[in-house]
């Protein structure tokens, strides 16, 4: 067994670099190398980029079967590489792909997995992970057994983006694909961008408008904020009843019940009908002109002001800070 840390580099997602940044620290503490696993088709640049972001070297599988991400061929390669190279730790970003890929690989390897972690530390030469459980109402420390690699996925935006250093260099080794196309049970038929139509029930971020938006056009800044955050657009019953926005967006007792990590209520007073649908959101932000609006009693953060000023300012700020 080595002390090396392997990181899967997801394509087109900055979570790969955040994870690489986190892994850098782990590798340094273990005294091992940080190895980027780059899989895809025509991904030589990605390997170079990974080294720039802190990897010591890269293992690159470049194959037509790896074009768009697919679980089975990716897992087969990573499993084989892990078995061949015996890394101490194998990390991925806790993206949709990373969550399933890590689980699949962990099962194939028979090793332990700590998903969706917010903190990784090294104790006694091994990984200790911290992660929220019970939808954020408890924090668990995860201890690993003897099997290696210890696997974990890192929650998005928990670790900062490392700074790219194009002067860094490292060895890039090509590896072959494991599965041929005929061995792969799935085929990606296409991807439709879903910006602005994120489903409410599955959204982790929701931005909602109520009576305060004043009309159908008033939803434009609310939508813009939702888009900037990659969140879904919600509405109170009044806004729906007034015909400003379709019923599909209604959050509340008689609309959708939602439980996002972040709920931003714009111009919503917080009638019980609405509260019933969103009060279990992890963090509620209320933006309302009326400082006495009941919504403030349920919010963690409140801004008393005109949503038509505050919401665009927020959109601008988020875009600047998140680079979206």
């Amino acid at each position: 067994m080595s002390n090396n840390v392997f990181v899967w580099i997801e394509q087109n997602d900055p979570i790969a670099w955040e994870t690489l940044g986190a892994a850098r620290g782990v590798a340094d503490q273990l005294g091992g190398q940080l190895v980027a696993l780059v899989l895809g088709e025509n991904v030589a640049n990605l390997a170079t980029e990974a080294i720039g972001y802190g990897a010591d070297r890269a293992l690159v599988a470049d194959d037509a079967t790896l074009g768009p991400y697919r679980l089975e061929p990716y897992a087969a390669i990573i499993t084989q590489l892990a078995q061949a190279h015996q890394p101490a730790v194998l990390l991925m970003g806790a993206s949709s792909a990373g969550l399933e890929l890590s689980a699949y690989v962990a099962a194939k390897l028979g090793v332990g997995l700590a998903p969706d972690c917010t903190e990784l530390t090294v104790e006694d030469g091994g990984l200790v992970a911290t992660r929220p459980v019970l939808v954020g109402n408890l924090v668990a420390k995860i201890a690993f057994g003897d099997a290696r690699p210890q696997m974990a996925t890192i929650r998005r935006r928990v670790y900062p983006m490392p700074t790219a250093d194009s002067s860094r260099s490292g060895e890039t080794t090509g590896v072959a694909a494991v599965l041929s196309e005929s061995d792969i049970p799935t085929k990606v038929e296409g991807v439709a961008a879903s910006s602005g139509q994120v489903s409410l029930t599955d959204a982790t971020i929701i931005v909602s408008g109520g009576r305060g938006v004043g009309g159908p056009e008033g939803f434009a800044p609310v939508q813009a904020l939702a888009d900037a955050l990659g969140g879904a657009l919600g509405a109170s019953r009044v806004a729906v009843d007034s015909g400003w926005i379709p019923y599909a967006h209604q959050v509340g007792q008689t609309g959708k019940t939602v439980q996002p990590d972040l709920y931003i209520a714009c111009g919503i007073s917080g009638a019980i009908q609405h509260l019933a649908g969103m009060k279990t959101s992890k963090v509620i932000v209320a933006i309302n002109k009326d400082p006495d609006a009941p919504i403030f009693k349920f919010a963690r953060y409140g801004i008393v002001g005109d949503l038509f000023e505050v919401v665009p300012a927020l959109t601008k700020e988020f875009k600047a800070r998140l680079g979206t």
Binding site: Q253, T257, I272, L275, A276, K279
Partner: peptide, 12 residues
């Protein structure tokens, strides 16, 4: 569901 689990219809 609110009545079953929380004893009130708003699930409070």
């Amino acid at each position: 569901t609110g009545l079953e689990r929380n004893g009130n219809p708003w699930q409070m």
